[in-house]
């Protein structure tokens, strides 16, 4: 499994890429693998306020429904319009084409509190 070093991660298996005050959010390789074939994605609308720790979207596999939680708070600036038509992108490219939303962070430093790749890998090892 692949866990890019430049990303931050959450216990619920979301990832965040921070570029100044913009945060791109998706689900990790571990999450997509655990879900299996993703067949449906529900995303918020642009302009929606998301709150750290609260669900902002839903990913459904054939078998299961999973909420996706906002790692940090902010306003949705862009959503991945490709996903509703091609949800399987989350399986094939969880970190690139499979990104879910971009938010303008309320607090640019908020991502510092999230896990780095070492901490996340330790978290996964513990969950297994």
């Amino acid at each position: 499994m692949d866990f890019p070093e430049e990303l931050k991660y959450t216990e619920e298996h979301e990832w965040v890429l921070v570029e100044e005050t913009l945060a791109t959010i998706g689900v990790s390789d571990f999450a997509q693998d655990a879900l299996g074939d993703v067949v449906f994605v529900e995303l918020p609308e642009v302009g929606t306020e998301v709150v750290a720790g609260k669900a902002f979207g839903v990913v459904e596999s054939v078998k299961a429904v999973s909420d996706v939680y906002a790692p940090i708070s902010g306003i949705v600036e862009e959503v991945n319009e490709e996903l509703p038509d091609a949800p399987e992108i989350i399986n094939t490219s969880p970190y690139e084409d499979g990104w879910m939303i971009k938010i303008r962070m309320a607090d640019a430093g908020a991502a510092d509190a999230l896990m780095d790749v070492e901490a996340y890998q330790a978290h996964i090892a513990e969950e297994k």
């Binding site: 299996g36 074939d37 067949v39 596999s61 054939v62 078998k63």
Partner: peptide, 9 residues
């Protein structure tokens, strides 16, 4: 076993 290669496949 719930799946091998993937449910859809």
């Amino acid at each position: 076993p719930v799946q091998y290669a993937g449910v859809i496949e």
